[in-house]
């Protein structure tokens, strides 16, 4: 694609850092911002600069946060003895959107993945154990993804927390709500059967 001008080219290149944005979409976005919404463009640029400069990790749960302790960790109304361990900040958002959980979180920012060279130290597991011991946690819910690496991570954490006295649970995996058994894969059905519950 022919280049337009140094500044516009730079903007188009920069927009392509976004997932799913190729040169065509980036060009469309650049022209939109410059032709139709310069005010919006200014505020977008400012928001990106501010966020990158100020958003770090919560000292307690490792979730993305601009304060030392994030809003969930500092909320005294939430159950501090209940901890949900997730792989990524977007998992926190997913669980929060259900409004069915009122405990706290711990974000691993990944999962054990030997071939990618990700080991226990990269996931802050020492800090997790320390946190569990210090806060006298009652229950740790392992909500890593139901993938091979997510399962290995969950098992590793359960072993690492052995002897702390905390109850360690794993989220259930099974048939999606509104789904039909006929279309569910074998692995999921196996999990669903293994994790069956009695009807009260």
């Amino acid at each position: 694609m022919s280049r337009i001008s140094p500044l516009i080219d730079r903007l188009i290149d920069a927009l392509q850092v976004l997932p799913g944005i190729g040169i065509k979409s980036a060009t469309r976005m650049a022209f939109h911002l410059l032709q139709r919404n310069r005010e919006g463009a200014g505020s977008l640029a400012g928001a990106i600069v501010d966020a990158v400069r100020n958003v770090g990790q919560c000292r307690v749960c490792r979730n993305l946060s601009e304060t030392e302790s994030c809003s969930i960790c500092s909320n005294v109304k939430r159950d501090a003895a209940l901890l949900c361990v997730v792989e990524s900040p977007s998992d926190v958002v997913a669980i929060e959107s259900t409004a069915s959980y009122d405990g706290k979180y711990f974000v691993l920012h990944g999962r054990l993945s030997p071939i990618d060279g990700v080991g226990p130290a990269d996931l802050g597991l020492d800090r997790l154990r320390e946190h569990v011991v210090q806060t006298e946690m009652r229950e740790v819910i392992l909500a890593t993804n139901p993938t091979v690496e997510g399962e290995a991570t969950a098992h590793y954490i359960s072993e690492a927390l052995a002897g702390t006295g905390v109850s360690v649970t794993r989220i259930a995996h099974g048939v999606p709500v509104g789904g039909e058994l006929e279309y569910v894969d074998g692995g999921t059905i196996t999990h669903a059967l293994r994790g069956r519950t009695s009807i009260d």
Partner: peptide, 21 residues
């Protein structure tokens, strides 16, 4: 297409990851 789905758990899962690595 799935031919056989093996279910590996706990240290057997680690061992499988070890073989892959």
């Amino acid at each position: 297409d799935i031919e056989i789905e093996h279910s590996l758990r706990d240290r057997y899962l680690y061992a499988g990851l070890y073989l892959n690595e």
